[in-house]
Design a protein around this nucleic acid. Structure first.
Length: 229
DNA sequence: GCGACAG
DNA sequence: ATCTTGTCGC
C-alpha cells in the first residue's frame, strides 16, 4: 500500500521522466571537470542531520581541485525508490557553494536503474541542468529482475534489461571485488557512462574517485562533528 | 506475520 | 545510511 506522499512523489517523477534523454549532450573532449556527491547521516537529539559533500575532479589529471560541504537537518524519511526527495535539498544547497562549474556529476545511487527511471542521478539532473551518472554499491531490484554477475575481470559488465530496455549495468571495477551498478542519469549514454566510470577507478576503491572522495570527506566531517559532543 | 529494501 | 572487532586474504 502506497502512502499519500508517495503518490505525490510518483506524480512529480513521472512528469520529469518524459524528458529523460539517454544520449550525450557533450563531446568527450569537452569533459574537463567531474563532480562526485555523497551524504552521511547522524542523529542530533530528535533531529536527523546530514552532511553533503561535493568533490570536483579534473578529468585530465585525476586530481581533486575543490571540495565543498554543508550540514543541515533532514526532514524526509528514507523510502526505497524515493531517495532523491530525501537528499536533493542538501545537494542543491551544497552545489551553490561551488566555485567551479562541473561538466558532469556522479551520484552515490541509481539513475535510470529505478522503478520510474528516476533515481537520484536522473532526478538531480533536472535541477542541476547537467549530465549525470548513477553509481550504486548494491542492487535495487526492479520488477523481480535479478542482475547477472559479470565475469571476474576488470571492465566486465552485464546489462540489466527490463522490458527490453537497458536500465543499467553491473560493472566489475576490480578483480575479486563485488561489481558496482552504473546507470545513466541523464543526457549521457550507457557506454559513455561506463567508460568514464572505468577511467576514474584507482586501486583504493571499487568506486570512481569523485564519489569515493565525497564519501571519505563526508565521514571525516561527521567524525569531527560528533566528537564535539 | 515475513521478506525486501539505492542511501 | 548506521550500529561495530576481529579477521581472512591479496
Amino acid at each position: 500500500m502506497k502512502s499519500k506522499i508517495m503518490e505525490v512523489f510518483d506524480g512529480i517523477q513521472s512528469d520529469l521522466s518524459h524528458k529523460i534523454r539517454l544520449k550525450n549532450s557533450f563531446a568527450r573532449e569537452d569533459i574537463r571537470l567531474i563532480a562526485g556527491v555523497d551524504l552521511a547521516y547522524w542523529e542530533e537529539g530528535e533531529a536527523t542531520v546530514a552532511c553533503c559533500c561535493i568533490c570536483v575532479l579534473d578529468f585530465s589529471t585525476k586530481k581533486i581541485i575543490e571540495i565543498k560541504s554543508l550540514i543541515d537537518e533532514v526532514n524526509v524519511a528514507y523510502m526505497p525508490g524515493y531517495l532523491s526527495f530525501r537528499e536533493l535539498p542538501l545537494i542543491m544547497q551544497t552545489f551553490k557553494k561551488l566555485s567551479n562549474d562541473p561538466d558532469l556529476v556522479m551520484f552515490d545511487g541509481n539513475g535510470y536503474l529505478h522503478p520510474r527511471n528516476m533515481g537520484i542521478a536522473t532526478h538531480a539532473s533536472f535541477h542541476l541542468n547537467k549530465s549525470t551518472i548513477g553509481i550504486a554499491k548494491s542492487y535495487l531490484k526492479i520488477n523481480s529482475v535479478d542482475f547477472i554477475m559479470p565475469s571476474n575481470n576488470v571492465g566486465a559488465f552485464t546489462d540489466i534489461v527490463i522490458n527490453r530496455i537497458v536500465y543499467g549495468r553491473a560493472l566489475r571495477t576490480h578483480k575479486n571485488v563485488k561489481p558496482i551498478f552504473v546507470s545513466c542519469g541523464n543526457w549521457i549514454d550507457i557506454d559513455t557512462a561506463t567508460e568514464i566510470t572505468l577511467e576514474l577507478i584507482n586501486n583504493e576503491s571499487r568506486l570512481p574517485i569523485p564519489v569515493r572522495q565525497a564519501d571519505l570527506e563526508t565521514k571525516k566531517i561527521k567524525r569531527r562533528k560528533s566528537l564535539l559532543f
